[in-house]
Design a protein around this nucleic acid. Structure first.
Lengths: 215, 215, 215, 215
DNA sequence: CATGAATGAGTGTTCATTCAT
DNA sequence: GATGAATGAACACTCATTCAT
């Protein structure tokens, strides 16, 4: 009989099987991912996640032992999904530049995060245990590695300058993350995702400097 | 039981005037800046700031009305200081590339932040009132603007490609922030700040792509 | 060190169902009403209410969102109970004077408040939100109205002088409240509730002045 | 250098003697009385009193050792002033009824209290030490006694019914206080102080009941 | 499977009070 | 006479977590 004079009511016990499109545990994961990405680890309360899922806090704890565990699961799931989609594009048979441009376009178009991965990840770091921390970093690495491998290949084929593939990957993802976030906060609203992606890749490919050979 | 000042006690009232190297309000600002940059807004407690300053929570509140106000003051102070140092270098009479390299080197060398500006800033956003939010964004803009102006000048002089100066500034700062953070967390420890700065600027200047003119 | 249940400890989680005479939320309400009436709004801490109920502060907040909400709920419940009991007497088939005397006697006999309604109510006023303020005043009005209606009726029947029924109700309740409070604080302890009630009603009915018609 | 970035400034040391209409200690007393009567003991902070006086908290403490002491001094001063004014009227050579009516009119006209004496007094009770409590009650008694003596005299002269003079005094003051408070909060705004005073005294003098001699 | 009830350890904030100047 | 700086003890409120059902 929580909060005397509340409105919402929920009876205990297993709910009827019908009309249950998504498993509860899965719904929680989705909602949690959204919230964590929107507000960061500390600012999201387990209660808020539960409320959004229309279940109780206890239910969340039934599936995920701690807030940190929920966070880890939610973010890893999200990252895996991104890594997969990214890989699908990376596997295409096109010049690297075009593939990266496409990835950028898609990423910049899909909205609603307000914070970027790295941010959320690093903020939560302090609250995770070693295992969770490792899992998160592995999932992060996974994405980086895929991009990195693509660069490594391109270097081998002489399509990009032979700097560190790791550096390339980080630079690419960093810029992508950062502009993604800005796009939904401040940047001149006129800038479209498409334009920004093109500008970014142009810059990424040939830098800011006037090529001396042009002279 | 040896350490005389170990079990330390403090009585109320104004302390004797002597032995006061730094003003308390200033000390609080420094400590707060360090902590916020290391752990983010939510994770830092006002108590922790006070403890580190060897004053009580109430003393912190004597100077700063709320945690958000403390945060705002601390971060703005930090940003101003960086903006100033940056400007000093931007004012030199050298090619832009060299000036940006120097800024990068210095920034990557000075340590201890763990998180980057944008991160901390955006995390705190939710907890600030409109005035504070504005003040923070202004301070942030200040730095961006200075870099941007340098780029705009260079564009005019034909020293860099005529893309948006704003884009250049954001890209530069984003990469700098990101690598600065990584340098103190994960990256192969072998990478020195100097090397990283050079790599970064090389990339920044001429991008990843093989110059077509070479062919 | 004898008293087994003296150093008492409580672990979290739902308590076993047995041995639960009163619902916790109800107990809290009772205790809160007592304390608020004894000490006023500001002076009662939520902690004190919790302690008295042998639950934790968090439990109180589980049922009542804020101290003001707790106050509102507690006081309204108390007022309703009084209004009901009062109505029961007002409904009797006796002269108004006798009914009011009975109400006074009962009220003056039941102890433990130290402060009077109006006092507590008005002190809390500043801390309540509009909704709560309204609810409180409604509950207060309820009691006044019942008394007022009784007077109105009596006026119609020519049993009391045709002054404002509202004024009569307020005067009656005011005197009752005030003497109730005094009875438990200062007044000559010899005065019994019964005597005081009689004196009060005598005065209420025929005032202080020497009836001119007597002369 | 309180609250970094505050506006108001005050330099230490004794202020110049000119333009100092009221002694600081007296001003504090006035302001404190107003505030305590408007908000009660607990709700008024020493800081608020200081601010209103345009001095600092420390200054208040320079004159009054504790908040309770300030309260006691302020309220006693107020009560004395009222007692004096009341006495002045009581000393007139008119029928008691007329004198009480005049007192009522004046009291109901002078505004701004929101709470009544008894209320404020009893709320503070818990926070006062024995001496202060005594002093307050003495001051309160003083007023009651003066009214009481007037009634006693009238009883002797056969001008009022020979009930307890103490009771009469309390009833009179209680009604006065209560209506005074209501007049400034809720009561139909149309009711004027004058009308209310007349109604009250009519009632006070001849009560609510239909005089049997009328029959 | 899912919940309602309860807790413990904070967290930001307030405030009366103190003391060297 | 009056102040600025500082403290300590509370206080309202939050939240992750637990447990019997």
């Amino acid at each position: 009989m929580k909060r005397v004079s509340s409105t919402w009511k929920k009876s205990p016990g297993r709910p009827p099987a019908h009309a249950k499109e998504v498993a509860t545990s899965e719904k929680i994961l989705q909602v949690a991912a959204d919230l964590f990405m929107a507000q960061g680890f500390e600012s999201v309360t387990v209660d808020a996640v539960a409320r959004e899922c229309q279940v109780t806090k206890a239910t969340v704890y039934y599936y995920y032992a701690t807030k940190a565990a929920l966070f880890t699961a939610a973010v890893i799931r999200l990252m895996d999904s991104i890594a997969q989609k990214t890989q699908a594009i990376l596997d295409r048979d096109e010049p690297l530049q075009q593939r990266l441009l496409l990835i950028a376009k898609i990423r910049l178009m899909t909205g609603g995060t307000r914070l970027d991965f790295d941010m959320v990840l690093h903020e939560a770091d302090l609250s995770l245990n070693e295992e969770q921390r490792q899992a998160m970093h592995d999932a992060e690495q996974e994405l980086t590695n895929r991009i990195m491998r693509a660069f490594a290949e391109a270097i081998e084929k002489g399509q990009v300058k032979p700097l560190s593939a790791h550096f390339y990957a980080l630079a690419y993802l960093t810029l992508l993350n950062s502009f993604h976030m800005r796009l939904f906060n401040e940047l001149e609203k006129a800038v479209t995702a498409d334009n920004l992606a093109v500008t970014m890749m142009d810059f990424f490919w040939s830098g800011a400097g006037i090529s001396s050979s042009v002279v």
